[in-house]
Write a protein that binds this DNA or RNA. Sequence first.
DNA 1: CTGAAAGCGCTTACAG
DNA 2: CTGAAAGCGCTTACAG
Lengths: 341, 341
Amino acid sequence: MRTTIRDVAKAAGVSIATVSKVFNGYSDINQQTKQEILKIAKELDYSPNMAARTLSSKKQQTIALILNELNFNRKSTMPLEVLNGVYRYTDQSDFEFVFYGTSTEKQKQKTFSQFCNEHNITGVVIQGLKTTDPYYQEVQQTSLPTVLIDMEIDNPKIGLVSIDNEKAAQEAVDFLIANNHRQIGMINGSRDANVSELREKGYRASLAAHGLLVNESYIQYANYEEEIAYLICKNLLENNQEITALFCASDIMAIGAIRGIKDMGLRVPEDISVIGFDDIILASYVTPELTTVAQDMERIGYEAAELLTDIITNQAETSHRKISPHQLKVRQSVEKISEVR
Amino acid sequence: MRTTIRDVAKAAGVSIATVSKVFNGYSDINQQTKQEILKIAKELDYSPNMAARTLSSKKQQTIALILNELNFNRKSTMPLEVLNGVYRYTDQSDFEFVFYGTSTEKQKQKTFSQFCNEHNITGVVIQGLKTTDPYYQEVQQTSLPTVLIDMEIDNPKIGLVSIDNEKAAQEAVDFLIANNHRQIGMINGSRDANVSELREKGYRASLAAHGLLVNESYIQYANYEEEIAYLICKNLLENNQEITALFCASDIMAIGAIRGIKDMGLRVPEDISVIGFDDIILASYVTPELTTVAQDMERIGYEAAELLTDIITNQAETSHRKISPHQLKVRQSVEKISEVR
DNA sequence: CTGAAAGCGCTTACAG
DNA sequence: CTGAAAGCGCTTACAG
C-alpha cells in the first residue's frame, strides 16, 4: 500500500498533525522534530497525496489549460506553444498545472462550471474556443478566474491575451498596397473564430484607409484548412483574374493557396503575391519563403498564465487585457508590382 | 460555494448515498428517483468532485503521461504527437488523463514513486527519459504499471513501445551502401539516449554486414541539436574528406548538417548524401527534401496508452513489448554515386 | 430500493 | 511546540 501521513507519524512517534505541519512549512515546529520527520518521510518514500490535500485544504491551487478541438496538426504547433508557455509559467509558481482537451461535443455534455468544479480548478486559460461553442456563453457569466486567448468577450472580469489582430492584419494589407497591389483577395478562416473577424476587419480597414472598395466576392473562408484553401484559392483566382495578391488569415492556408496558384501555372510572387499569418515554422522553409505576420504563442501562453495568477490573487490591474506584440516578417512571397493596374 | 453531493441530496430529498449511486451507475435505484436526482443535479450544475472521488474510491483510474525535458522545439513536434496519441486513447477510455513535465532536476527532488503517489496515478507512460536520469533507475523496480517509449529496460513488467531502432538505422545505412557509398559518417544524438545507442548499433551492423570497417572517428555526437550538428558536420568533413554520405540520428541534426555542408561550398546530394531520422514535418519542406526514416509518434503514443491499460487491467499478453512499424522515405537528399571509391 | 456510518488522506482551528 | 478532533466531498459495505 502507499505510504500515508499516518505511516510517517507512527514511525516518527508524532501525530499526523505535526507531520502535516512540517510538509506545509509551518514555523512553529521544533527543528529537531522537523528534521526527524523529513528523514523518515524520505526513508518511507512519502509525499503528500494531492487529492487529499486539495480536498481538505482550500489552498491547493491548480491552474488548468483547456485546449479546444485539439487538432494537433503536425504543421501547426500553436497549441503546443501555448501549452509550453503556460507550463513554463506555472512550473515556477506555486500552482499545480493541469491540461485538458475539450470539444464542442464534450461541452454539450458538461458545463464549464461543472467541469471546473469536478476538477477543482482554481483558474483556467482557454484557447481555441469558437463563438458557437457552449463554453463561450458559459464563460461570460462565470465567477471563476478565466483568461481567454485570442477571443474577445464582454465580461470585464475575464482576462484576455492576444495580439492586436485587427491592426496586424491591417499592416499586412497595407504592406501589399505599398507594393502597388490594389486587387487583393482574402482567404479567411472561419466565421466562428473571433480572430477571423478581427483579421477581416483589419483587411477592410486597410482598403478603406487607402480609398479602395471592398469587393465582397474577394473574401472567402477556408476554415483554416490547407486543402480547402487550396481549392478556394483556385476558384477565387479563376473567377477574379484581376487579383494580384492574397492575404491569408493563417500560414497553413497560405501554403495551400500557394500550391493552388502553382497548380494553375502561375508563379508566386511574380504573378500572385501571398501573405500569411502566424509565422509557423514552415513559413521559413517553404519556397518561396512566406511573408507573414508573426505572433509568439509561447509568450502569449506565458502571459496568459501570468495574468491568470494576477486575477486569482487579485493583483490584476484594472485591465484584464494584455496585448502581445506582433511583427510583419518580410520574406519572399510578396513582390512589388511596377504599374498600379 | 460549489455545489456538492449534499446540496443535490437535500434538494432531492434523498440521502447522499443515493445520489452517489446514481452518479456511479448502480442499477438498484428506482428509475423515478434516478431521473429526479439527475434533473436536480443538472439544475444545480452539479458534477462529482474528482479529488473526493479519487480519495474515497480506489476505482478512479488516472493515466499520466510524463514528458521529460519538455524541450518543445518548434521544429520537432514529437512530444506533442506522443501527447496527442496518448490523449486520443485515454479520451475514449474510462481513464482520466493527466500530463506532467519533468526534468532531471525535478527527479532529484522527488522520486518516481513519490511523484506518482502524490498524484494518485494508476499508470504512467514516460517519454524522453535518459539513462542517466534518476527515474531510469527507479522505474526498474517500480510496481506501478509503466510504459516506456523509446527505451530498453530489464524489468519485464515494464511496458515498452518503440520502433525497431536498430533495424531502422541499419536499413538506412544499407540504402546508402546500395547507392555505392562506402565512406559513411554518422552524426549521432547523445550517449545517454537509448535510441542513440540502438541507431549506432544499426549503423555498425550495416557496415559489418557489407564487410566494411567502422572508422571510429566517423561517429560523432551532436546531442540532437541542430547547431551542434552544423558545427560537427563541418569538422567531420574537413577532417575526413573521403566521406560521401552522412547518416544522422535525427532530422533536426540532418538539417543542421546540410547547412554545414552548404556552408563549406559543397552540395547535397551531389557531393554529400544525407539521410535523417524521424520524418518530422520539415523533412519534406527543406531543400533538398530529406530522405529519412519515418516513425509515427502519434501512433506510438496511442499504442503506449493501450498497452498501459492492458497492463493495468491485467490483459496484457505475456510480452509487454510493442514494436511499431517504421518506413524509409526516399526523397532527394541521397544520390547514387557511380564508381565505388 | 434507500440510508446511516465508516473511511479515503489530508489540513487547520483550537486547546494545552 | 504538539496533538485531538472536525471536516473536505465523496464511495461502499452493510442493514433494513
